[in-house]
Amino acid sequence: MTSLAPSRRSATTAEPPAPARRRADRTPYVLIAPSLVVLLGVLAYPLVKVVILSTQKWGVAQIFSASSAPTFVGLDNYTKLLGDSAFWTVLLRTVVLTVAMVGLSMGLGLGIALLMRQVPAWCRRGMTFALVMAWSVPTFISTEVFHWITEYNSGVANWALGIQPHNWYTDATQGLAVATAVVVWGAVPLIAITLYAGLMQIPSELVEAARMDGAGPWGVFRHITLPVLRSLLAMLTTLSVIWDFQVFNQIWILRNGAPSSDYYTLGIYAYVKAYAGHDYGLASATAVLTVVALLGVMVVYLRQIAKIGELS
């Protein structure tokens, strides 16, 4: 270590003027310091705590006992979860739902962002207005509204479709389709507006030049638009996967806070199984498994992301 450091420095100082280089060396660390402080300060202890708790029995009985000390239980919480056949069904359902939700919201979001460049200004303004309106409504409110729109007797959706009365929720496939629609509806504004902002970075001269070189719309999209958007798309997809994998509110509220077991996603499963019993050890174990599952889903993808970070 000690022998490595000086040799490295001497290697770098060889090229540009030494003082400028040294300052540049410190600058990036100064620049990322504030965000590191926030992230570590807020999240370091909680992250460690979650891992530790996942090996403990920690519930009402322990919290309020005289010693208020947790009991170490090793991997009990994990074996309890992994040994539950329902867990695997729930995991599979969560993955399928996530794929559907992310696919739809990314597809629609990109489509709408591209569309916004093709429409007249009044229409574009209307679109941004509608999207931001939708985005600004808190999830728990918008889900209530959707719950209402799909209400059995007096819901406007059933009325408009002429299928009154219709129960959207007795069949979980149909109910989860509604939930997917609600999630996608809520996710698209962020995606579309961010991508539209990204599109705004493409100089129109570049597009014109490509056109003159004989590129069709698809060619322009592939060779000009996509490269500019690539890192935004990667980031939005990753975050969407993370968020949608943990979907809770939409399903919970659409089902009046009492979904039947064929509606369980990992988030709901954890809540019902662990939080209902104030079993924070088990809850932490589900959180750790959620991260593991997400890593499993995204292992290839994350490597890509790290590469984007290294490349730019």
């Binding site: 990322i32 999240l43 988030g267 959180a287 790290a306």
Partner: peptide
């Protein structure tokens, strides 16, 4: 690593944190 770690941190469910 910083970029990936920032993302990683988001994977932990909020209810657990």
């Amino acid at each position: 690593t910083y970029l990936a770690a920032v993302m990683l941190v988001q994977m932990v469910p909020h209810v657990a944190l």
